[in-house]
């Protein structure tokens, strides 16, 4: 959250209230009242269950009934489980690839949609529509397209590699997931980039024009550095979302073909549905630690950027 607040250009001096003479600022109790409901719900619904889950990761519980402490056995088993390791490899490769695809395409679209073009508002609306459709529905629709429409097209045109559903090919199925996830995620990223591009004052470009900078130089030397804060937000939010990939994969491949596209959240869910509670709690704990580490690193980088 802090990065989101930190990202817009800092407010100008005179809007900041002057510090009180005593050096301490009085805090209105009403602020605490505002925080209280979400704090309580967050504690009860997220923090407490997380702690209980981590506790159970040191047991052999299957979710109910008797259990014993088994120490770090679950964690040791995780590292020797090829299915778990494969899900980590898949999830991280998928997340990194998708972040790159989404950000590059969304940035290009944002540059186009903030330029002086016709029907700008209508086009923006069109590009944002995918955002309002639920992931599982998008997945089912694309699943139909990939399995029926695209192969039919491939056969009609005589293109061999298009004639079979890419979702049925263990080596290519992940591409289908990247395409659909990108299609759904680009609008949100796009909106943030549009906001960023609009916040750049026009006179900077006028000055650049006068100095004889080409359009390409303007993009690399002015636009990109000035929206770098927005790039960081989009990368952090995107990575977080894509590491949690679940609904689109369920709708498209269900982890298949074989186990080629099983993501970490999918394996964690089997802890509940498959009675492997303690083991998957250990998996969740490990996943949590990895995500925290990544987030801290990203926050460090983004702080460094903003203070420049």
């Amino acid at each position: 959250m802090t990065t989101v607040i930190a990202a817009p250009p800092p407010p100008t001096r005179d809007t900041v209230p002057p510090p009180s003479p005593s050096g301490k600022r009085r805090v209105e109790p009403i602020y605490y009242a505002f925080l209280l409901p979400s704090l309580v719900i967050f504690t009860l619904a997220i923090t407490v269950p997380a702690i209980i889950g981590i506790f159970f990761s040191f047991t052999n519980s299957i979710g109910f009934g008797d259990w014993d402490f088994i120490g770090l056995v679950n964690y040791a088993a995780l590292f020797s489980d090829p299915a778990i390791l494969q899900s980590y490899l898949f999830t991280f490769s998928f997340a990194v690839t998708t972040v790159i695809v989404v950000n590059v395409l969304a940035f290009l679209l944002a540059v186009g949609l903030t330029a002086r073009i016709r029907a700008k508002t209508a086009l923006r609306t069109v590009f944002v529509i995918p955002m309002v459709v639920s992931g599982i529905i998008i997945a089912y629709v694309f699943s139909f397209l990939f399995s029926n429409s695209v192969p039919a097209l491939g056969q009609a045109l005589g293109i061999d590699w298009l004639s079979e559903s890419i979702l049925a090919n263990p080596d290519l199925a992940w591409i289908g997931i990247v395409i659909v996830t990108a299609w759904q995620s680009i609008p949100g990223t796009l909106l943030i980039y549009i906001a960023g591009l609009l916040s750049i004052p026009g006179d900077v470009y006028e000055a650049a024009d006068l100095d004889g900078a080409s359009k390409r130089q303007q993009l690399w030397r002015i636009t990109l550095p000035l929206v770098s804060g927005y790039v960081v937000i989009n990368v952090i939010l995107g990575l977080k979302n894509f590491l949690n990939a679940y609904d689109i994969i369920i709708g498209l491949t269900n982890g298949g073909p074989g186990t080629a596209t099983r993501s970490i959240p999918m394996t964690i869910i089997t802890g509940f549905t498959g009675g492997d509670y303690a083991y998957q709690m250990a998996n969740a704990a490990m996943f949590f630690i990895i995500v925290v580490v990544i987030s801290v690193i990203q926050l460090r980088i983004s702080r460094g950027r903003n203070s420049v």
């Binding site: 269900n254 982890g255 073909p257 080629a260 498959g274 998957q280």
Partner: peptide, 12 residues
């Protein structure tokens, strides 16, 4: 047990 992705294995 369901925790082993048997269906996915048979699919492969």
């Amino acid at each position: 047990p369901l925790t082993i992705p048997t269906e996915n294995y048979t699919q492969s």
